[in-house]
Amino acid sequence: MSEIPRACKVKANDFEFTIDPSAVMQADIIQKSPTDFNAILNHRSVNARVLESDVTGTSLKVEVEGETFDIEIRDHLHQILDQMGFSTVSSKHIKHIKAPMPGLVISIAVTEGQEVKEGDRILVLEAMKMENSILIHADGKIKRVAVKAGQAVDKGQVLVELD
């Protein structure tokens, strides 16, 4: 019997789990076909299907109860590579207000340099025929207004920058 890999990190959509392969080997999981599984986990009987997989089996698409999950398995070796420092996460604290949905800017209630208080209306965004007031959630000072009235914006687009 080959050696069992050590605990690996598994991403499933935006969730992450640490899974011990030896526990998986002991779990009550039946492979019904090359892609179909039934597992009894904590007395729960669940069916799952592997929809896609790469050659190594570390990047997969798995469906459970009608929901599809994109899976990335990072085994011990991958984790060491990650730790050796190729990850480039650095958190800059630029404060800006982004569009929560795509839409059309109807009107803008603030000007550059203006002091604003929590709860003040920044602008009105129309999406799907609804007018939504975009409010600010903290006190601050408007550094830049990045959009104009009448402009269509995408989800996540910066509307206003704050000092």
Binding site: P5, C8, V10, K11, A12, N13, F15, F17, I19, P21, V24, M25, A27, I29, Q31, F37, A39, L41, V46, A48, V50, S53, T56, G57, T58, L60, V62, E63, V64, E65, E67, F69, I71, I73
Partner: peptide, 19 residues
């Protein structure tokens, strides 16, 4: 979703080990 994600992750590991 998290519970289902965990099942999916577990079964993916099983699939990977088989592979």
């Amino acid at each position: 979703q998290k519970a289902n994600a965990e099942v999916a992750a577990t079964l993916a590991v099983k699939f990977w080990l088989n592979k």
